[in-house]
Design a protein around this nucleic acid. Structure first.
Length: 493
RNA sequence: CGGGGUGUAGCGCAGUUGGCUAGCGCGCAGCGUUCGGGACGCUGAGGUCGGAGGUUCAAGUCCUCUCACCCCGACCA
């Protein structure tokens, strides 16, 4: 895809032509994020500047997540950015997992620090340290806390939103009395917080599943995940929930005296969802014209484009625009009118690029009839004229339809790119077909060697073992031995 | 971190074998004409060529180092 190399149309105009040739998905993604003014690179390697439009989407996502976290009984708190370096060492697997990407602070001003600090890559350790003091009795449990924070992981290869050296997220950390309680919590978060949020608000279908041991969080007993398919058929982990067993509780001495008088080691969980979902949003719904935002998280749900030539027309249109704005605000719609001195066509593509779900055109002809024209982002040919008086009910209904359409389209796309393989060759063939890349479902014997072999030869990994297992058994896609696990393979972001 | 590529105006690019006040398109500012799918004219502002060092009478063009970004791998939310 050539980028802005010839003359003629404006920058944004040409962008559409470029996007129409969506063959280079990575380039398309970068361009879309940048041109829609969501984010851009910063002077610091791998760190991004989240611009107001991107941040507004994040704020809406935060609200959706936070509401669910609170609704399931958790409270927010805040723990420090800096963690004593020694904390990381306490859990063997954990330090091994994170050490390579941890940023250290060794000096303050001109003083060398007595104990170097790590900039949190995640907060299990420092939170565990506090929990050890807070938890004394079974009556203190469960302890259900979440925090919104930034974390730093010095990644080798970064991409706006998808993988940045610093990212924003929420991380929940809970402590429980029994193993069952911890497992229940882990799954509650996975389904009622994450899956519900991602599917309802982001209109992004996901497969809830269990990670294989090799993909498990460093220090966890079990890691659950939500796997989503991006527009190029690759997989992206949209959220994770870990049952940490007693690993961290043991390392940080989180104990309690139970009703039977015994002192017991607690069971903990942790779970997180990050700004990465913004990248997923772009890659799942975007099209050749740019973003397509689900109404639930769109900063602007409806954009009014007034059309006029003469001053008299402008006044007539302005009166209707004001009425429409008032009506829609009253109906709870996030609406804006674009009064810039630009031609209508320019504004259409401007807002399409930014993914605004619904465009409302109001011109002299409409003003005269007391109508407006509604044009959904999901189908520009589906224009409908609606009387101003009906907008209060019609627009919210239409936004719901758009939300639904985005979800349905994503489900249909995923279905069209989900295959089954009964042999290694079939699996390898699928993973080699870049044009129709997708998920491959197959039996797996559970042997890490088979998993590793598949990865080496096809670059595909086990995204998850879906919680919704078909049951029964079959032959492992790699070794052919009896297999009881149904796995989803895919190339991951 | 390995392989490949690129850094020239806000963005996208051109700058012939080193040689005059470094160009072009978009964007931006002003004025005018336009306005139901990305308008046009005129005028104008804006770069010292990623950074450092070197070669040379002369460096955007050559050399060394360095930084950043992109693509492909390995690592990861």
């Amino acid at each position: 895809m050539s980028v802005d190399e010839d003359t003629g149309a404006s920058g944004e105009a040409r962008f559409v032509e470029e996007l129409a040739d969506k063959d280079d998905f990575s380039q398309w993604y970068q361009d879309t994020v940048r041109k829609a003014e969501m984010a851009e690179d910063s002077p610091v390697r791998g760190c991004m500047i989240i611009r107001p439009y991107g941040y507004a989407i994040w704020e809406n996502a935060q609200r959706g997540i936070d509401d669910r976290i609170k609704a399931t009984g958790h409270e927010n708190a805040y723990f420090p950015l800096f963690i004593p370096g020694s904390f990381l060492q306490r859990e063997a697997e954990h330090v091994e997992g994170f050490a390579p990407e941890v940023a250290w602070v060794t000096r303050a001003g001109s003083e060398e620090l007595a104990e170097p600090l790590v900039v949190r890559p995640t907060s299990e350790t420092i939170i565990g340290h506090a929990y050890a003091r807070w938890v004394q009795s079974y009556r203190d449990l469960p302890l259900l806390i979440n925090q919104w924070a930034n974390v730093v992981r010095w990644e080798k290869r970064t991409r706006l939103f998808l993988r940045t050296s610093e990212f924003l997220w929420q991380e929940g950390h809970t402590v429980h009395r029994t193993e069952d309680d911890a497992e229940r919590e882990t799954l509650l978060i996975l389904h009622q917080v994450y899956q519900d949020f991602v599917e309802r608000e982001l209109a992004m279908p996901v497969i809830p599943g269990l990670k294989s041991d090799s993909e498990r969080f460093a220090g966890a007993l079990r890691t659950y995940t939500l796997e989503a398919m991006m527009g190029d058929g690759k997989a992206l982990q949209a959220g994770t929930s870990h049952n940490l067993g007693q690993n961290f509780a043991r390392a940080f001495d989180i104990k309690f005296q139970d009703a039977d008088g015994q002192v017991k080691i607690a069971w903990t969980t942790s779970w997180g969802m990050s700004t990465r979902i913004i990248g997923a949003l772009v890659m799942v719904h975007g099209d050749a014209s740019g973003l397509r935002l689900p109404p639930r998280v769109a900063p602007t749900q409806a954009i009014i484009v007034p059309i006029w030539r003469k001053e008299a027309e402008r006044e007539a249109v302005a009166a209707v625009v004001a009425e429409v704005e008032a009506t829609l605000r009253a109906a709870g719609v996030r609406v804006k009118a674009d009064w810039r001195e630009e031609r209508p066509g320019f504004k259409y593509s401007h807002w399409e690029l930014r993914g605004v779900p619904l465009r409302i055109e109001i011109g002299p002809r409409d003003a005269q009839k007391g109508e407006v024209v509604l044009v959904p982002r999901t189908d520009r040919t589906a224009k409908e004229s609606v009387a101003v008086g009906e907008l209060g009910s019609r627009v919210p209904a239409l936004l719901d339809e758009i939300q639904r359409a985005l979800y349905d389209q994503a489900v249909a796309f995923r279905a069209s790119r989900t295959y089954r393989a009964s042999s290694f060759d079939e699996l390898a063939e699928r993973m080699a077909d870049r044009e129709h890349l997708g998920f491959v479902e197959a039996w797996w014997c559970g042997d890490a060697a088979c998993e590793a072999e598949v990865k080496t030869r096809t670059q595909a990994t086990i995204r998850c073992l879906p919680l919704d297992q078909p049951g029964g058994s079959g032959a492992c896609v790699r070794c052919g031995k009896p297999a009881a696990k149904w796995a989803v393979f895919g190339k991951a972001y």
